[in-house]
Amino acid sequence: MNSKNKKFLVIGIIIAIVIAALAPFLASSNPDGLESATEKLNPQALEIEPVHESPMPDYMIPSFGESPISGSIAIIIGVIIVFALAYTAGIVLKRRN
């Protein structure tokens, strides 16, 4: 990879991590559009339990409690996983000459 792309990559990841770190402090805790509509149209549907237990439910690390810092860490972990997966998918799937 050339240095121009490396620089783009590093700046891009830093921006994503900054957004991730700030998200729990800045995000609205109001329900999202679908949840809000469900509250009005079919509130019983919100009682249904998910089919699996996720390790970081609601973008929090359970052992760190429900604090914004716990949220920041969870979302940064997510950013890194998504970045690694997308980059790997790109390498595996790219055009070959």
């Binding site: 891009g12 921006i15 998504v82």
Partner: peptide, 21 residues
Amino acid sequence: ERKIPLLAVLAAGIFAIQAMN
């Protein structure tokens, strides 16, 4: 291959921004 950094950065950024309602 040169587009992979853009693809990966967009994926990471979208994940982060989706967590900020």
